[in-house]
Design a protein around this nucleic acid. Structure first.
Lengths: 159, 159
DNA sequence: TCTTGACCTCAACTTTACATGAGGTTTTAC
DNA sequence: GTAAAACCTCATGTAAAGTTGAGGTCAAGA
C-alpha cells in the first residue's frame, strides 16, 4: 500500500542525493553529519541510506544554527534531546528552546552591539577614535584588563 | 618629554604581553593577527613589537566580529579600509559600517528566525513537527529544493 | 540484461584559527 | 651587571568542518 505522498509522486523516504538536493548541502556533508550523530538513516538491503522526511527539517535547522556561529558539537547536543527518527514532540522543542534561548539572546545582543558601535562611531562627531574611546563601552571593558570575555555574557558549551 | 598618559603611569606604547593581557587574547593570536594583516606594530631596536593603544580597539572589534561568526578574512578586509596605525576618521568608520550593515542586519534576522522558530514550535499546539512543517517558513524553503541558500539573503565575501 | 549514474567505505587532503615548543635574543628588575 | 621574564622566528601540531579520490557495489531505465 502506498502512502498519500507516494501517490502524489513524492517518495516517503529520501536517498542521500535527494536530501542533498532538497536541503542544499553536499552528500559528503550529510555523511559527515551522520557520523557526528546529527542525523540518522535507515539502510536498504543494499546498504544505501534512506532518510525520513524529517531529516530536511533537521538539516535546515543545522545550517541556520551554524550560520549564526553555533558549533556542530553544540548543535549535536541540542539535537540529541530530540528523538532521532520520530517526529519531535512539543516537550522536545521546549527543552531545546530553553537550552538555547539564553545563548541566542546573547548572540543577538552581541550583534547589536557590534552594529551600534559602528553607528556610534559615525555619529559621535569626533574625528579621533582615540578620543571616542573614552565613551565607548566596547574597549572600556577591554582596557580594564578583563578582556573580551566581559563582553561575552556567557560561555558557549559545557564540555 | 613624557606624554600625559606616561605621567599617569600608563605607557603610550604596548608590548605584545600588555596587549594580550588587556585585550584578553593570547600572544600567539596577536602574532597571528599581525601575520594576517589585521593589526600592525612598530619594532624596538631589539626587534620587539610595540603597539599603539589603538590596537586595543581593533582587537576588541576583531573578537566581537568573530564571535558573531564573521571570518577573519572578512574582518581583515573590513579593517583594511581603516588606517593601519593612525586613528580612524569618521569617514573611515562610515565606510566600514556601510559595508557591514547589510550583513549584520541579515545575521540578526537569521538569529531571530532561529529563536522564533523554536518558540513557534512550542506555541503552536500541534504535537507533531511533521504537521507543523506546513506552516513553518524554515523548511518550506528547503523543501522547495532551493536549499538553505534561500534563507541566506546575501553572500558573505566577495573573493 | 546490462550499463550508467548514484551509492558505499575509508583514507588523505584542505582551510581556518590558532597553540606549542625549540632555540636564541632583549628587557627589566634587583 | 646579571638573571629571570618576556620577547623573537620558524616549524610543527590541533580541532573543526568538511572535500576529494580510490576502489568497489547498487539500482533504475532502455
Amino acid at each position: 500500500m502506498k502512502t498519500r505522498l507516494e501517490q502524489a509522486g513524492i517518495p516517503s523516504t529520501l536517498s542521500v542525493g535527494d536530501v542533498a538536493r532538497r536541503a542544499g548541502v553536499s552528500v559528503s556533508a550529510l555523511h559527515f553529519y551522520e557520523a557526528k550523530g546529527l542525523i540518522s538513516s535507515d539502510r536498504t538491503e543494499g546498504n544505501q541510506r534512506r532518510y525520513s522526511r524529517d531529516v530536511l527539517r533537521r538539516v535546515a535547522f543545522i545550517r541556520v544554527a551554524q550560520r549564526v556561529g553555533i558549533a556542530l558539537t553544540d548543535i549535536a547536543s541540542a539535537l540529541a534531546g530530540l528523538p532521532a527518527t520520530a517526529a519531535p514532540t512539543r516537550a522536545d522543542w521546549a527543552r531545546l528552546s530553553a537550552a538555547w534561548r539564553a545563548d541566542l539572546d546573547e548572540r543577538m545582543a552581541q550583534l547589536k552591539k557590534l552594529r551600534d558601535t559602528l553607528d556610534d562611531c559615525i555619529g559621535c562627531g569626533c574625528l579621533s577614535i582615540d578620543r571616542c574611546r573614552l565613551r565607548n563601552p566596547l574597549d572600556k571593558l577591554a582596557e580594564q584588563g578583563a578582556g573580551p570575555q566581559r563582553l561575552w555574557v556567557g560561555r558557549r558549551s559545557a564540555d
